[in-house]
Structures are given as structure tokens and as C-alpha cells.
Design a protein around this nucleic acid. Sequence first.
DNA 1: TACTTTTGATTGGAAAAAGCTATAGCCCTG
DNA 2: CAGGGCTATAGCTTTTTCCAATCAAAAGTA
Lengths: 312, 312
Amino acid sequence: MPVSVPPLTLRQLRYLIALEETQHFREAAESCGISQPSLSVQIKTLEDSLGLTLVERGRGPVRLTLAGREVARRARDILDATQGIMDLSVTLQSGLGGTIRLGTSATLGPYLMPHVVGDLHRSHPDLRLYIREAAPRDLLRELGDGMHDLILTQLPVSGATLSVARLFREPLSVALPAEHPLAAKDMLDNDDLSEQTILSLSPSYTLHDQISALCVETGAHLSRDYEGTSLDALRQMVAMGMGLTFLPALYVESEIAGRARDVVVRPFRGRRFSRSIGLVWREASGAGPAYERLATVIRETAKRFPHLVIEG
Amino acid sequence: MPVSVPPLTLRQLRYLIALEETQHFREAAESCGISQPSLSVQIKTLEDSLGLTLVERGRGPVRLTLAGREVARRARDILDATQGIMDLSVTLQSGLGGTIRLGTSATLGPYLMPHVVGDLHRSHPDLRLYIREAAPRDLLRELGDGMHDLILTQLPVSGATLSVARLFREPLSVALPAEHPLAAKDMLDNDDLSEQTILSLSPSYTLHDQISALCVETGAHLSRDYEGTSLDALRQMVAMGMGLTFLPALYVESEIAGRARDVVVRPFRGRRFSRSIGLVWREASGAGPAYERLATVIRETAKRFPHLVIEG
DNA sequence: TACTTTTGATTGGAAAAAGCTATAGCCCTG
DNA sequence: CAGGGCTATAGCTTTTTCCAATCAAAAGTA
């Protein structure tokens, strides 16, 4: 007959994490706002209910055992998730607050978000953004899996249960080696591309499809021998003379404009070749109003960049 | 002065999920082994502490609100994770039990795991495997992120904090259209490949690198125009005459051997061109002994396939 | 309309869990 | 070997959770 095992509680997990951080029962208790014996008892209860020794007691600072560290690692995830639930109250209500887990395309986030967070922090001080980058196709899957609350990505996206807020169109310009013949022109067009070699990102990126389609249209040759894994890699490949590529306006603005000597950037088709950017979330998240508000903030920020065409 | 908000508890989340499933307070209470008033109170407390209405009370069956569904969705993840912690006791101790989240390469898992799970279920009845497939590079990242406990993937892998159990070497054979001239030969070698077009998977797969290197060595042309997203896709591309490719032995065994008419498969270099397969886990997971045991089971299963060379 | 049934909310008191203070026991250090 | 710092244990108090009984509202039925 097994002795009835007390169930796992969030409290116990919190205490374990505090213990791991402080390596000290008394300090951990203090940081939790309880007395040291209370914490001792909870840790002991947790160990009993798991049937594991989590803490090496003895001389010196408290050390978690291997098992303890693994439990603590998972406990962090769990507590983050509970925090997410508690933040929902704020997010769902209407106001923009709590922690939003924002997934962003690696070709966009690093060049846009730094400008947004400043504005955002001023207008919504109690909002925290947890930002993570990935390729658009991964993002979309991860959004469905609940890994993100919201993703910032290239449109269009498919999915009946998704909501979209369009943000802006971002022109794609041609990047070419400084010594390339076409660098002499101020503006490039379809005809200029025929027979050129175009470099692209991996197919996980929506950008890849767009560039690929353009190559068909213009008769350019899409190189598959080297697929860039980031815009920086792509730009370096261009600098080495491996081909031309398309770079989005925000990347150009932030990483190239005015200082790069290795590559030059030229507008293409009068900047009418562009990609569309938007926020996407699960309709069922119920936080639509909050995300719409966030979209508005981002659009405001985007107005500072003359080449972006605001939408929505 | 805000009234002190009672903290979120796992119990409340459990009750909410039961309520969503049964759509009925009394039944939910019953399924939780408590009385209906207790459940009512806990749900109410949860709503108060979140500041949200989670349940539409009234006529007809109980419905969760939008917010309620979102909370329940997250609650499920949280409870799964706590279950994971509780299973650790079993997994870590030594025995093979509980739930192991196994990530597996999409080029391997579907062809190996079906054979393993039978043996495994017999020898370790209380072990549950939660299997998820992805490309090796994603797997490795996800392992670090704690999404998997263990991954089954092509070696080598890098990472100081990872432990590896080598399982076996799996020969890679050449697949070619039935009408291809080389199909006349029983066995192919480096020389046969020169000037041939070779198809490969996307670079997220370790297999890509290996095939790519072989192309350099043999003077074959690696086609980047069409990258397969699965072995099945690759095989169909071969059948359509777009080129040759390499297929791992277990895939051949399970999907082609003896019945396919569209492609033929030939050993390459006397089957000494192969990829190495192993289990990988976070050293800090502390479940090394259990995973080693799992490795042993897989090696036993692998012995049934004469072409595999068992390692470890 | 009045009576029953069904369903979730409320109440009051018992049981369980979690907390605190005080103190015991251990291992270092001086 | 005394003293200081550490965690564990004991005994008691407070808070939380639960149940049984009861209430109130809605819906069906005679």
C-alpha cells in the first residue's frame, strides 16, 4: 500500500528555484518572504513526493543534485507559463501589459524591433516583450504550438484560425558588389537582372519564394549553391562577388546605409518591389485588441522610415 | 490598497480543464474526486485571481469563454510539464519509465521507431514515448531548449554539455530511376557518380552535408534546384528522372525493398558509405543510465537489420 | 399554475496544508 | 571546545481546502 503522496505544487517549484539561485536555505526563504523552516519543509516534501534527492545538504553552499537541476530547469518553464496565464488578465482585458512572447523573422526583427521597444517602453511601461527569432516557416508552426503569443513576419500567412494585422510594405533593394557594372546605375529594373546570379536565403524564409519568383520573371539565375543563413551572410557573399541579392529596406538602413564599402545598394523598380509585413496571432488567444494596439505602435514607429509604406 | 490576490495553483488549473472537458460542474467535480461546491469555489477563486471571467454560467451546458479556453490551453501545457517532472523520478532513478519526449530525425525515426516500440513496450511496459520529428539542426536546438528529453539523430553532434550513445552505422545506397544506365550494375562506386546529378535534402539535415561532401569528392553535381523535404519526396524526384540520390538503409528496407518499381537501389562502395546514428541528451538531465538502457534496446532491435553495423 | 428536477452558488464547520517561533543537531573555525 | 553559521525538527497558529447541507434560478411537467 503506497503511502499517499502529496501532489506537486507550484509553491514548491518556486522555492526550489529560489534555492538554486541563492544556494542558501535562509536566503532563499527570505527571498520568498517566508521563514527558513517553512522552506525546508516544502523542499523536503517536494523531494519526498518525487522520490528524489534534489539538494545536497552539508558543508558549504547548498548545491542542487543533477536531478535537482533538471527539476529546476523544468520548473522555470512551468513558472514562466503560469506567469503567462496571469499576464493574460492584463493582455486580454485591453491594455497592453504583461509579458508577450513575440516571435520574429530573423530578416526583420533585429532591424525593426530596436526602434520599437523604445517607443513601446515609454507608452506601455508595464509591457515586457520576450523576443525570439526564427525563420518564418518555423515561426508559424511555433505560433500554432503556443510557443509564441504573437509573431512578426512576412505576409501572407495561411491558417483559418489566425488573425493578422498588416503593418507596412518594406521595399527590397538590390545589393551588388561595389565594383559591379550595374553599380553605375542609380536605379535598377527587371531588364538589368537577366543573366545575373541571384543569391537567396534558405527556403524556410518567405523571402526565398519571392526572390525565386522574381528570378523566373526576369530571367535571372537563382543560385542554390550557397544559401545564406542570415542577411549578414548574404551580404558578405555579395561582397565576395558571388552574385547579387535583395535586401529589405530596414536591413539596409540599419547595417549598410552610408557606411558600407563592400556592397552598394540600389533601388529596384522604383521601390515597388517589396514585401508585406504584419503581426499574426491565434484568433482564440482573445487578445486581439491588445495586439491591434501593439500594431498601431509599430506602425507609428515605422513612419520614421521614409521608405516603408504603412498599411492597415 | 489592492486586496491580496491568492496565487495561482495547479489544482485550479486541473479543475478548469476538467470543467472544459465535461462542460459540467458536477461531472467535473466527480472526475476530480471532489464535491461540486469545492470545484465551484476553486473556479471562482481562479477567476478572481486572474480578474477574468472564464466560464459562461447559465442555461445549457457550461461553456468556457474565449479567455477560459486560452487559459485552459496553457494550463494543459503546464500540467503536462508537471507530469514530466513527476515522471523524472521514474526515469532518473534507473528504470526506464514515465514519459520520454523523444525527438527524431525525419529521415530515420519513421523507419526505425516502429520496430523499436514493440520491443520497448514488452520490455518496459510503463514507459511512454512522446515522439516528434524534425530536421537534425532543429532537433539539436530544441533539445537545448528542453523541448525534448532525448533525440535520435545523425552523428556527430557538437555541444560540451551533451551526452551521446552511439547506436549503429546505417549504409547509404544509391537510388536511381529504373531505366538509368547505371541500374545495370549491381554495385556502384565513386567513379560511377562523376558527372551525375545528385539530389539532396535541405541543409537542415546532416545528410545534406554528407552528400554534398561526397559530390565534391566524386565530381558529381549536387543539384540545389530542388531540395527534397522528405525522403519520400526525394525518391519521387529520382523516379521522375531528375537525378540520383542516397537513401539510408532503413528507409530502403521499409519503403522500397522488394516492391518499388519506380526506382532501384544499389549498394555504394560495398556499403561502407554510411551515416552514424546515436541518441543524444543533455548531460544535466541526469537520466543517463535510463537513456543508455534505451540505447541498448534500440541496438538489439537494430540487429534484426543485417545491413546496419551496430556500435557503442 | 404549481410541482419537480436540474444546476450552479453559498454557508458553516471539519480537516489538511502551510506558516511561524523556538530549538536541536551538525560542522566548521578560532 | 566554545561560538557562529547552517539546516532539520517540534509544537502551535493561521490559512486553505473540502464536504454536507441548503439556497436560488431555470426548465420541464402535470
